[in-house]
Structures are given as C-alpha cells and as structure tokens.
Design a protein around this nucleic acid. Structure first.
Lengths: 333, 333
DNA sequence: TTGTATGCGTTATCAT
DNA sequence: ATGATAACGCATACAA
C-alpha cells in the first residue's frame, strides 16, 4: 500500500503554498485559471484526494451521518437504509451504520459512540428509548431525524417522519365496508407498538362510524409474524365464526392468517377478505396474492436524509412529516 | 446542543498537562494511581469523551471499517451486515456502510470514497470488479476481506471468505441419489455468478460419477427469483418430463419452481423433490416447507470482521476461508 | 492573486 | 512521574 499524497505534496510539486493548492482543489476563487489547471493536473497525477477526516477536524463538519436501526436483517429497515445510503452518497455524505439488535442498552451506547465521532447529523429509526432519554440524546446532536417515532414536543433540531397509520387503516377498513363485508376484524400487533395503536384507532374510527363495530372482531396483542397471524386468525374465528374480512397489522400476520383460514376451509377472498400492511415480497409470492397497504420505504430513507441535510444547513425548519400508505389491491380482498 | 468538552478542558481543571490527562484516560503508565483517579473523575463529571476523529488524525488509526454490499435490501446481505456490525461494535470499530446498488460504477466510486476516509480496513461483499481492477483497489487499503469472491493470486493484505458451494451442491445431489431419484435436475442462476458456477460443478461432479448424468436435466442462466424459478421449472419439465428431483440455485428459485410444479399437478416430494440454497425465512413459511442448504450468514459477517482485525494488527496471516453449507431437511425432499 | 500564521483535538517524542 | 513541543492534514483569517 503506497502512502497517500497530501495537500503539501501537491503544493510542493506545484511550487505554491498549501493554501493556493487548497483553493485550486476546492474550487474557490483567488487564483488564475491557468494556475488552477496546473495544480489540478498535478493533483490528479499524484492521485491526490483530500483527507476527509483532517478536513473535518479543521472545519468541524465531518460529512458523517449516523444511521441507527433496530434490525438490519429486516427488509423493512433494509429498504430504508438503502434509501438513506443512496441519498447520502449523492450528497457526499458517509454513513455510520449501527444495528441495535432491538436492544435498549445497545441503542444507548450506540448513540454515545456516534456522538463521540462528531457526526453532522443522526437518523434514528424506531427508537425504543423513553421520551425523556430520547430528548436528551437528541439535544446532544446538531440535527436529528426520527423515523417511526413521535414526540410530544417539538425540538428545534428535530424532524420526525412517520407513517400515516391512522389514515391507512381507515382506507383499508372503508374498502371492506364498501364491498359489503359485514364482519370486519382486526388482527393486532404488539401492544407496545405505536403503529399498532394508530392502526387500531383508524380501524375503530371507521367501524364505529358505520355502526358495524363489534368488540368480538378484534384480537390485539399478537406476535407480528406468520405464526402469530395463524394463531390469531383461528382465535378470532372462534370469537366470531361469521368473520368475512380481516385487516392485519402486517403482511407476515396476514399470510399466517391466510394459511389458517384456508386450513379451516375458508375461501379467500370469497368467504373472507384479507388486507395486510407493508407489501413485503412474500405478498406477491403466495396464492392468492395479498392485498396490502404499501409504503415506499426507500423513499422514506431518502426523505429522511434530505430533511436531515436541510436541518444541518439550517435551510429548512423542523417538521413532522406523515407518509401516506397506499392500498395495493391484489387477489385477497 | 452544548459544546463537547475536550482533553484540554479536563487538563486545565485537573491542573495538569494534556499529556498527563491523556495518559490517565487511555490507561497508560506514567502517573500515580491517585492522580489518575482524580483525572478520571473530572473527565466523568465533564462528560468528556475522546474525539475519535482527532485521535485518528494523530495516530493514523481511525477505527473505521468500510463495508460494501451490493444490496442491503437483500436479507442475505442484511444478515452478513448484522454479523459484521455486531462484531465491529464489540471491538470498538465503527462501520461505514455503502450499498452499491449492484452497480459497477457505483462500487468503484464507493471504494474511492472509502479510501478518502482513511479507513483501517475494508470488507467487500460480492464484488463485481474485474480481477485486475479489484487487485489494484485492494492494494490501496491497509487490509481487505473479500466475501463471496475469490482471486487467482494471494495478496499479503487480503483474506477471502467463500461459501463451499462445490461441496454443498455435492451434498444435495448425493442426497437425491441416495433416495432413489433417477432424474435429478439443476435450476441454475445467472451465468456471471461464481456461486452458480461452483454449484453446477459440484452437481455435475456427483452426477457424472453416478452415471446418471443427462444434459437435458440442466437449465442454466435463469433470473434468480421466484419468477425465474417458475419459468425454469416449466421449461426443464418440457426437456425432461420424467424429472423427479431438482436442485435450485437458491430458495427463491426453488419456491417458484415448487409453485410451477404444483400447478402442473406434480406432488412434492412424492413425484418430485426440491432442495434450494440460502434458507430464507420463506422456506419455512410455504407448504411443503423447503429443504435447503443453510449458511450461518451472520457468522460469516462476524468471521469477516475478526479476520480483518487480525489482518490489521498483523496478528494473523491472510487466508482463504471456506464456509460449509449444511443441508436442512424439511418437507420438500 | 498569493502566502503566513494559527488552530481543530489528540498523541508521540523527547525533555525534565 | 510529568510536561513542552511538534505533528497529523487541512482550512480559516488575515497579510502582503
């Protein structure tokens, strides 16, 4: 590995001061176009590239962004990460990635570690931190974007990005009612999930307004995977054998529910319709293909990064963004 | 955001020189235990944390590792990333993540960008770079671990980690033969995939030795997703209607193939057996559950990072590691 | 248009 | 055992 050449090397060969070389390379005014070209050429020959770290020390702008996710293995976050990464790359920022393993302790020490690295900004996904801790963490960073988490108060350096779960659930539920489903159920996710809470609210809001509300059609607090959906569907069916539509907390649960329903002889969608949330790849692989509330996750990542850069450069005020879910109709509804 | 306190702050309050403070904090000898405790306490009160970047400048060890993957959205890489990330965190290293979007140009500029950041080492997954380019890239970095890619020559700063595709394919193929399958087929992946090539070799090696080889049972060069598998299975069935076993390039293709076979009335595994590769979550969701060659991907990530750190610290020689695949038998075979 | 001095936060080196 | 000084690579502020 041959040593990297520095600005000093370039300057020496060009017979100019480091400052002149610096100006040439950073495209700043203050030297003849002739000289600039000559310096640029020398730099190119040397394979010179500025040392970002040293530059960061001098300018106290590091061009590093921290990205914290609970589980990179989950395609949900994988998509978001990809969106962030692409946008970061386009804007000349580097990404520090931390996977917290859904662990609170780990999340805290990850934030400490990032703080230590003088990052310009932080994107924090689905934080599990208690509100008070979260706020004091946010205060340590120049700018923060919170994805999939809301706060009671607004902070001057904070933008939040959340799914419009309430509206999404309303759309799905209304769809069922408009298609003459009479016994619409909800297969809930974990109780501590804010998304779950918001989706249930939207669901209830539509049902209660329609006069179709029946407490027996709701089964909350399930494990949000296929097994959880399988189990929940069977239990819900016991509570109400006439069930003819199910809105599931997510696609994984919806798929499990579909299997359970098919096993007990229900036809989908004739006897019972199903809509999930997330639009995971599996949704189009199974039969019948699953109708679902789709979110452009990669775009969320991109929006998160761009919002962060706006925050960093003070060119935009903090906001609380809502990302709409779109109903993708397929064969299950 | 309150300003971070620096080593100078600590030193001033403790009434010592920065060096003494530095020694105290870094656990180096050269001061009384008494003084050390006093300094440590002051540092703690100030909430002092060393600035990693400045330290990197001074020591020319950054504690940054670059991690380049073609598609973070793919759980295959998600798992690897997670393994790397966990191990990195445990060892006090930070991860620069780059997603190249499976794009060659992007991969090159990503490596440039990482080089610019003076990373201590690089983990490069499934690189698409031509061998010559790849080698000159590797030479720029202090240490590199190549995952899922081999090189003709050994480099002094390079360790490679690859799946033992050849052996894995042999295991699956032998299993078919031992269970009296007479017409064993291979559903290949992309032609430019090295894994695909190695798996085909293992497959052929066993079949030719058994005398069961039939060129009609092989369909190479398919898109490695469910659609590709679906299409390939139907085409293979046309070439040989007696097909009674299929080894697929990956699980996604295997799942697609299963659907196609079921659609034309084949029973799995009675009429035809299937084995895939990867053990994706979907493998246990579908019916019948898919037999597959399983790899501990997270462990690959961990091994990659640890190997890299060994390389960085010169405490171990470069090697070429082979990771074994294990046959997970389920219902499809 | 060009150059000099200085500082970013830390550690290495050499004194004391 | 402790400290002064230089150095890492670059950019800012100010001079010339």
């Amino acid at each position: 590995m041959k040593k990297r050449s520095t600005l000093a090397d370039v300057a020496k060969i060009a017979n100019v001061s480091m400052m002149t070389a610096s100006r040439a390379i950073n495209g700043k005014p203050g030297l003849s176009e002739d000289l600039r070209q000559r310096i640029l050429e020398i730099a190119a020959n040397l394979g010179y590239r500025p040392n970002i770290i040293a530059r960061g020390l001098a300018t106290s702008k590091t061009c590093f962004i921290g990205l914290v996710v609970p589980d990179i293995t989950n395609p949900f976050f994988g998509q978001i990460v990809r969106g962030v990464e692409n946008a970061a790359f386009e804007n000349g920022y580097n990404l520090f990635l931390v996977d917290t393993n859904e662990d609170l302790v780990r999340e805290t020490s990850a934030l400490d570690s990032l703080w230590q690295n003088d990052i310009d900004g932080l994107i924090l996904c689905s934080s599990r931190l208690p509100e008070a801790d979260l706020i004091s963490q946010i205060n340590r960073f120049p700018a923060v974007v919170l994805v999939n988490r809301e706060l009671q108060e607004n902070l001057p350096n904070l933008t939040t990005i959340n799914l419009n779960d309430f509206e999404g659930a309303q759309i799905a539920t209304r769809y069922f009612l408009q298609h003459n489903r009479k016994h619409v159920g909800y297969l809930g996710g974990p109780l501590n999930s804010v998304s779950n809470h918001r989706r249930l609210s939207g669901f209830l809001n539509v049902l209660k307004a329609s006069g179709n509300y029946d407490i027996n059609n709701i089964l909350d607090d399930n494990v949000p995977d296929t097994n959880g959906g399988w189990l929940a569907a069977l239990n819900l069916l016991i509570k109400n054998p006439n069930l003819d539509a199910v809105f599931a907390f997510n696609d994984l649960m919806a798929v499990g529910a579909m299997q359970a329903l098919q096993e007990v002889g229900k036809r989908i969608p004739e006897d019972i319709a199903i809509i999930g949330v997330d639009d995971i790849p599996l949704a189009t692989i199974i039969h019948p293909q699953l109708s679902t509330l789709h979110v452009d996750l990669q775009n969320i990542g991109r929006v998160a990064l761009l919002s962060l850069l706006n925050l960093v450069s003070d060119s935009a005020a903090p906001t609380n963004l809502k990302i709409d879910l779109k109903l993708f109709l397929r064969d299950s509804s």
